[in-house]
Amino acid sequence: MNTVATATRTLPASSQRIAPEKFAHVVLKTANYDAVIAWYATVLQARVAFRNDFIAFLTYDDEHHRVAVINTPGSLASDPAAAGVHHIAYTYAGLGELLATYRRLKASGIEPARCINHGPTTSMYYRDPDGLRVELQIDNFATMDESHAYFTGPDFAENPIGVIFDPQQLIRDYEAGVSFEDLVKRPPLPPGKTPMDMREER
């Protein structure tokens, strides 16, 4: 088949900053194939776009897939001391959506290992069937300029980890009508605690 070029093209200059347009997906390998697929489908309220005995693709939006799971029977769990991915994170539209997701998952027997207000985000960390941490979060500031300012400010420099919170109490405060600003404002560390103490998980 012959084609006729209708115009020439010029590549962007090599000096131009070209960043990815978006983060597309993560790919997991597991010996717990059915359990991992079910867990991500439940937690993210995702649908299985394709599945066979080797691989499954899940999506929760208009992307063709956001999570892929490869069936690897006999594979070993990751060594917690090994270098690698610490966690993956998903951002929700608002605090109500995050808390409703917490309540839904808790009713299904899925509870977070740690709930922490990092300052820039309010976050809940879960562990999938293989132990990988999955963070569900919201942004605490209305704009990225405010978030960036917090990252470079003294509060974050003093405590870049955050402060643990009780999700049940946060729900009670939310339903009582406490202002969003007060709900997501990071409290001070508990007396006698350091930022490193806030890393403890259930």
Rank of each mutant, 00 (worst) to 15 (best):
P187I: 05
L189F: 11
P154A: 04
H148G: 04
A149T: 01
E146G: 00
A149G: 01
P120R: 03
P112A: 11
F156H: 01
F180A: 06
G109V: 08
T152L: 13
V184Y: 06
T121Q: 12
Y102I: 05
P160F: 02
Y125I: 11
D145L: 03
S108L: 15
Y150D: 02
S179D: 06
A107C: 09
Y174M: 10
S123Q: 15
Y126G: 10
F180R: 07
K106R: 12
K193D: 01
L105F: 15
S123T: 14
A113L: 09
Q169W: 05
G153Y: 00
D155W: 04
E158G: 02
E135Q: 13
T122R: 15
D173R: 12
S123E: 14
L132Y: 10
P187L: 09
Y174I: 08
F156R: 01
G119A: 11
E146T: 00
G153W: 01
F165W: 06
T122F: 13
P129T: 05
Q137I: 03
I116P: 02
A157T: 01
K106A: 14
N159E: 02
A176D: 09
D130V: 12
D182T: 08
F151V: 00
I161T: 05
I138L: 11
R186D: 01
P167W: 04
I164V: 11
Q168V: 12
P191V: 01
Y102H: 08
I164W: 09
